[in-house]
Protein backbone atom coordinates (compact mmCIF):
# COMPACT_ATOMS: atom_id res chain seq x y z
CA UNK A 1 0.00 0.00 0.00
CA UNK A 2 2.66 2.44 1.01
CA UNK A 3 4.81 1.29 -1.87
CA UNK A 4 1.99 2.06 -4.27
CA UNK A 5 1.43 5.49 -2.80
CA UNK A 6 5.13 6.20 -2.87
CA UNK A 7 5.29 5.11 -6.49
CA UNK A 8 2.44 7.42 -7.47
CA UNK A 9 3.93 10.42 -5.68
CA UNK A 10 7.45 9.69 -6.86
CA UNK A 11 6.43 9.34 -10.50
CA UNK A 12 4.35 12.51 -10.30
CA UNK A 13 7.19 14.43 -8.66
CA UNK A 14 9.83 13.25 -11.14
CA UNK A 15 7.50 13.62 -14.11
CA UNK A 16 6.63 17.14 -13.05
CA UNK A 17 10.30 17.98 -12.68
CA UNK A 18 11.08 16.61 -16.14
CA UNK A 19 8.13 18.56 -17.49
CA UNK A 20 9.54 21.75 -16.01
CA UNK A 21 12.90 21.09 -17.60
CA UNK A 22 11.51 20.22 -21.01
CA UNK A 23 8.60 22.53 -21.69
CA UNK A 24 9.18 25.85 -23.42
CA UNK A 25 6.11 27.74 -22.35
CA UNK A 26 6.65 29.41 -18.99
CA UNK A 27 3.12 28.94 -17.74
CA UNK A 28 3.22 25.25 -18.60
CA UNK A 29 6.45 25.07 -16.68
CA UNK A 30 4.60 26.58 -13.75
CA UNK A 31 1.88 23.95 -14.10
CA UNK A 32 4.42 21.11 -14.06
CA UNK A 33 6.13 22.76 -11.12
CA UNK A 34 2.82 22.68 -9.25
CA UNK A 35 2.41 18.97 -9.99
CA UNK A 36 5.95 18.28 -8.83
CA UNK A 37 5.80 20.35 -5.66
CA UNK A 38 2.39 19.03 -4.66
CA UNK A 39 3.65 15.47 -5.06
CA UNK A 40 6.68 16.34 -2.97
CA UNK A 41 4.35 17.49 -0.23
CA UNK A 42 2.61 14.13 -0.57
CA UNK A 43 5.99 12.49 0.00
CA UNK A 44 6.45 14.64 3.09
CA UNK A 45 3.14 13.39 4.46
CA UNK A 46 4.29 9.84 3.80
CA UNK A 47 7.51 10.52 5.65
CA UNK A 48 5.57 11.53 8.74
CA UNK A 49 6.31 15.22 8.36
CA UNK A 50 2.78 16.58 8.32
CA UNK A 51 3.71 20.08 9.26
CA UNK A 52 6.38 20.36 6.60
CA UNK A 53 4.01 18.94 3.99
CA UNK A 54 1.29 21.41 4.86
CA UNK A 55 3.77 24.27 4.86
CA UNK A 56 4.98 23.15 1.46
CA UNK A 57 1.41 23.23 0.16
CA UNK A 58 0.58 26.58 1.71
CA UNK A 59 3.77 28.52 1.03
CA UNK A 60 5.29 26.84 -1.99
CA UNK A 61 2.33 25.72 -4.06
CA UNK A 62 -0.20 28.25 -2.90
CA UNK A 63 2.15 31.18 -2.53
CA UNK A 64 5.42 30.99 -4.41
CA UNK A 65 4.09 29.44 -7.58
CA UNK A 66 1.21 31.89 -7.73
CA UNK A 67 3.79 34.63 -7.34
CA UNK A 68 5.79 33.13 -10.21
CA UNK A 69 2.75 32.94 -12.48
CA UNK A 70 1.96 36.49 -11.53
CA UNK A 71 5.48 37.46 -12.52
CA UNK A 72 5.09 35.72 -15.86
CA UNK A 73 1.87 37.55 -16.56
CA UNK A 74 3.33 40.92 -15.67
CA UNK A 75 6.36 40.45 -17.88
CA UNK A 76 5.02 38.91 -21.07
CA UNK A 77 4.87 40.83 -24.30
CA UNK A 78 2.96 38.34 -26.42
CA UNK A 79 0.05 36.02 -25.69
CA UNK A 80 2.07 32.85 -25.09
CA UNK A 81 5.59 33.68 -24.14
CA UNK A 82 8.02 30.95 -25.15
CA UNK A 83 11.70 31.67 -25.12
CA UNK A 84 13.17 28.93 -27.26
CA UNK A 85 16.11 26.98 -26.08
CA UNK A 86 18.79 26.05 -28.55
CA UNK A 87 18.52 22.25 -29.14
CA UNK A 88 22.28 21.88 -28.94
CA UNK A 89 22.31 23.53 -25.53
CA UNK A 90 19.48 21.29 -24.45
CA UNK A 91 21.35 18.19 -25.53
CA UNK A 92 24.51 19.32 -23.80
CA UNK A 93 22.59 20.06 -20.63
CA UNK A 94 20.80 16.73 -20.76
CA UNK A 95 24.05 14.83 -21.17
CA UNK A 96 25.64 16.65 -18.26
CA UNK A 97 22.47 16.23 -16.23
CA UNK A 98 22.16 12.52 -16.85
CA UNK A 99 25.84 12.05 -16.01
CA UNK A 100 25.35 13.99 -12.80
CA UNK A 101 22.25 11.96 -11.99
CA UNK A 102 24.27 8.82 -12.49
CA UNK A 103 26.91 10.05 -10.05
CA UNK A 104 24.33 10.95 -7.41
CA UNK A 105 22.38 7.73 -7.81
CA UNK A 106 25.48 5.58 -7.63
CA UNK A 107 26.33 7.36 -4.39
CA UNK A 108 22.85 6.78 -3.02
CA UNK A 109 22.91 3.10 -3.80
CA UNK A 110 26.53 2.61 -2.75
CA UNK A 111 26.03 3.72 0.83
CA UNK A 112 24.59 1.17 3.21
CA UNK A 113 22.34 3.54 5.14
CA UNK A 114 20.74 1.13 7.57
CA UNK A 115 24.07 -0.53 8.26
CA UNK A 116 25.64 2.81 8.99
CA UNK A 117 22.87 3.70 11.35
CA UNK A 118 23.17 0.40 13.16
CA UNK A 119 26.89 0.98 13.51
CA UNK A 120 26.36 4.44 14.91
CA UNK A 121 23.75 3.25 17.37
CA UNK A 122 25.93 0.38 18.44
CA UNK A 123 28.81 2.71 19.07
CA UNK A 124 26.54 4.86 21.24
CA UNK A 125 27.11 7.86 19.06
CA UNK A 126 23.41 8.27 18.43
CA UNK A 127 21.32 9.20 21.40
CA UNK A 128 18.15 7.96 19.68
CA UNK A 129 16.45 11.25 19.03
CA UNK A 130 13.02 10.57 20.35
CA UNK A 131 11.92 8.57 17.31
CA UNK A 132 9.12 11.00 16.82
CA UNK A 133 7.35 9.17 14.07
CA UNK A 134 6.56 5.96 15.86
CA UNK A 135 3.79 7.23 18.05
CA UNK A 136 2.58 10.49 16.64
CA UNK A 137 2.07 9.37 13.05
CA UNK A 138 3.53 12.60 11.84
CA UNK A 139 1.94 14.91 14.39
CA UNK A 140 5.14 16.85 14.75
CA UNK A 141 3.84 20.39 14.84
CA UNK A 142 4.10 20.82 18.61
CA UNK A 143 7.57 19.37 18.76
CA UNK A 144 8.71 21.57 15.91
CA UNK A 145 7.17 24.55 17.65
CA UNK A 146 8.89 23.85 20.95
CA UNK A 147 12.14 23.10 19.15
CA UNK A 148 11.98 26.52 17.54
CA UNK A 149 11.76 27.92 21.04
CA UNK A 150 14.62 25.82 22.29
CA UNK A 151 12.88 22.96 24.10
CA UNK A 152 13.66 19.70 22.37
CA UNK A 153 10.96 17.16 23.12
CA UNK A 154 12.41 15.01 20.39
CA UNK A 155 15.78 14.85 22.09
CA UNK A 156 15.18 13.51 25.54
CA UNK A 157 18.35 13.43 27.52
CA UNK A 158 17.93 9.80 28.40
CA UNK A 159 17.49 6.62 26.43
CA UNK A 160 14.00 6.71 25.09
CA UNK A 161 13.67 2.96 24.92
CA UNK A 162 13.09 2.59 28.65
CA UNK A 163 9.72 4.30 28.73
CA UNK A 164 8.22 3.53 25.36
CA UNK A 165 4.88 2.58 26.82
CA UNK A 166 4.66 5.42 29.29
CA UNK A 167 3.78 9.04 28.89
CA UNK A 168 0.98 8.90 26.44
CA UNK A 169 -1.11 10.63 29.01
CA UNK A 170 -2.11 14.21 29.34
CA UNK A 171 -0.60 16.93 31.27
CA UNK A 172 -2.24 15.88 34.50
CA UNK A 173 -1.21 12.27 34.18
CA UNK A 174 2.28 13.46 33.58
CA UNK A 175 2.21 15.43 36.80
CA UNK A 176 0.69 12.82 39.02
CA UNK A 177 3.60 10.48 38.61
CA UNK A 178 6.05 13.17 37.88
CA UNK A 179 7.49 13.25 41.37
CA UNK A 180 8.01 9.50 41.58
CA UNK A 181 9.57 9.46 38.18
CA UNK A 182 11.89 12.26 39.09
CA UNK A 183 13.11 10.47 42.15
CA UNK A 184 13.65 7.27 40.24
CA UNK A 185 15.66 8.92 37.58
CA UNK A 186 17.88 10.69 40.03
CA UNK A 187 18.90 7.33 41.44
CA UNK A 188 18.73 5.20 38.36
CA UNK A 189 20.65 7.42 36.02
CA UNK A 190 24.05 6.56 37.34
CA UNK A 191 24.03 2.95 36.22
CA UNK A 192 22.45 3.78 32.87
CA UNK A 193 24.94 3.35 30.08
CA UNK A 194 24.14 6.78 28.65
CA UNK A 195 25.86 9.71 30.19
CA UNK A 196 22.64 11.57 30.88
CA UNK A 197 21.22 12.69 34.16
CA UNK A 198 17.46 13.05 33.95
CA UNK A 199 14.71 12.33 31.42
CA UNK A 200 13.93 15.83 30.40
CA UNK A 201 13.80 17.54 27.04
CA UNK A 202 17.04 19.18 26.12
CA UNK A 203 16.64 22.86 26.84
CA UNK A 204 18.93 25.28 25.13
CA UNK A 205 18.80 27.98 22.58
CA UNK A 206 17.65 25.38 20.05
CA UNK A 207 16.49 26.97 16.85
CA UNK A 208 15.51 30.21 18.52
CA UNK A 209 18.27 32.26 16.92
CA UNK A 210 17.71 30.98 13.36
CA UNK A 211 14.01 31.50 13.87
CA UNK A 212 14.51 35.12 14.86
CA UNK A 213 16.95 35.69 12.03
CA UNK A 214 14.47 34.27 9.56
CA UNK A 215 11.70 36.51 10.86
CA UNK A 216 13.85 39.60 10.55
CA UNK A 217 14.96 38.38 7.15
CA UNK A 218 11.36 38.07 6.04
CA UNK A 219 10.65 41.61 7.15
CA UNK A 220 13.67 42.85 5.23
CA UNK A 221 12.55 40.91 2.17
CA UNK A 222 9.04 42.31 2.44
CA UNK A 223 10.28 45.88 2.53
CA UNK A 224 13.05 45.29 -0.01
CA UNK A 225 10.84 43.55 -2.54
CA UNK A 226 8.18 46.21 -2.40
CA UNK A 227 10.86 48.90 -2.71
CA UNK A 228 12.47 47.17 -5.69
CA UNK A 229 9.16 46.65 -7.41
CA UNK A 230 8.02 50.23 -7.08
CA UNK A 231 11.28 52.12 -7.54
CA UNK A 232 11.07 51.94 -11.31
CA UNK A 233 7.69 53.58 -11.45
CA UNK A 234 9.01 56.79 -9.93
CA UNK A 235 11.78 56.98 -12.51
CA UNK A 236 9.26 56.57 -15.29
CA UNK A 237 7.17 59.39 -13.95
CA UNK A 238 10.19 61.62 -13.76
CA UNK A 239 11.29 60.81 -17.29
Amino acid sequence: MENLLFLIYAIAACGGAVGVALSQNVVRMAFWLVISLASVSGLFFMLGADFVGATQLLIYVGGTVVLLIFGVMLTTTGPYLAIKTNPAEMIQASVVGVAFLGVVLSTVTAVDWSGNRATLEHAGLVSRPGSYYQQGEGNTSRQIGTALLGVRFDQMEQGAAASDEAAHGHHHDGHTHADHAHGNHAHGAADHHHETISASPRVGSGYLLPFEIVSVHLLVVLIGASYLARAKRRVEQAA
Binding site: A10, C14, A17, V18, V40, S94, G97, F100, L101, V104
Partner: peptide, 12 residues
Protein backbone atom coordinates in the same frame (compact mmCIF):
# COMPACT_ATOMS: atom_id res chain seq x y z
CA UNK B 1 16.36 8.96 -5.76
CA UNK B 2 13.36 11.25 -6.11
CA UNK B 3 15.36 14.04 -4.53
CA UNK B 4 18.23 13.44 -6.96
CA UNK B 5 15.91 13.51 -9.98
CA UNK B 6 14.36 16.77 -8.83
CA UNK B 7 17.76 18.26 -8.20
CA UNK B 8 19.11 17.31 -11.61
CA UNK B 9 15.99 18.55 -13.40
CA UNK B 10 16.34 21.82 -11.54
CA UNK B 11 19.96 22.16 -12.56
CA UNK B 12 19.12 21.42 -16.21
Amino acid sequence: TVGAVLFVCGVI
